[in-house]
Design a protein around this nucleic acid. Structure first.
Length: 228
DNA sequence: CTCCAGGGGC
DNA sequence: GCCCCCGGAG
């Protein structure tokens, strides 16, 4: 690829997606917010997941919905809610959290908005959370970009990004094509899990990687004789 | 010590 | 475009 900022071809992206989905069918992670199609629960989970490890969110999610089974219970929650959320860190999340619940209940009649534009009006909801709710809970063809997805794109296609790769135009364009699939939910979950388990930041498992034959990063490792 | 399913304020 | 938000795990 001569132009390092160009977007890979649709064929290349389709190939990558097919491989990741096949991998996902075997190795997908199990989290409580994946056993529901309730957009509200998925939205709450995604808000908690931002800048926070999934394993750290798991227990909080369970306790939260055991204590407050529906949006009305959550909207009327007292100070105990702060205690449940405390372990997530990022204390600003607590007020944002309450505002989101309140807005959905009052402004949206207890129904999670179904467009990216409306979702982003909620406090603490940006492109990632909005895209995740639309694609994962509603199975819509909506893109997501997080730091892990940026990294996979960099490594696999040998593409350059800015410091804020999440917001790079060519990265978002890639993600739009990637999520243009018959199963956007699966496609997006697949790339999230793959980047967390195989193509992870510190020591990626390149040796056992199912897509290493086409990966620029892997070829570079071999050229440098770095053990993988 | 660094890192983590980002977002918002500037 | 840059920077900070911050608990817990490694």
């Amino acid at each position: 690829m001569t132009d390092k900022r160009s977007i890979p071809s649709i064929v290349e992206i389709n190939y990558l997606r097919d491989k990741l989905i096949k991998w996902f069918d075997v190795y997908q992670r199990d989290y409580p917010w994946r056993n529901t199609n309730d957009p509200f629960r998925v939205l709450i989970a995604e808000i908690m997941l931002r800048r926070t490890k999934a394993d750290q969110v798991k227990d909080v999610y369970r306790e939260l919905f055991n204590t407050y089974p529906d949006i009305d219970a959550l909207a009327n929650a007292g100070d105990e809610l702060n205690g449940i959320l405390y372990h997530l860190g990022l204390q600003w999340r607590q007020s944002a959290f309450r505002n989101v619940v309140s807005d959905i209940k009052i402004k949206y009649n207890s129904k999670v908005p179904e467009t990216r534009e409306e979702l982003k009006k909620l406090e603490g909801v940006g492109d990632y959370v909005a895209g995740a709710v639309l694609s994962i809970a509603m199975n819509k063809n909506e893109w997501i970009v997080d730091s892990n997805i940026v990294r996979l794109f960099q490594r696999y296609f040998g593409i350059e990004t800015s410091k804020e790769g999440r917001r790079d135009k060519h990265i978002i364009e890639f993600s739009k094509i990637y999520s243009s699939d018959a199963e956007p939910r699966k496609a997006n979950l697949a790339i999230l899990d793959f980047t967390a388990i195989v193509c992870k930041p510190g020591k990626p498992i390149c040796g056992d990687c199912i897509i290493n034959t086409n990966c620029v990063y892997f070829k570079t490792c071999l050229d440098n004789r770095v053990s993988v």
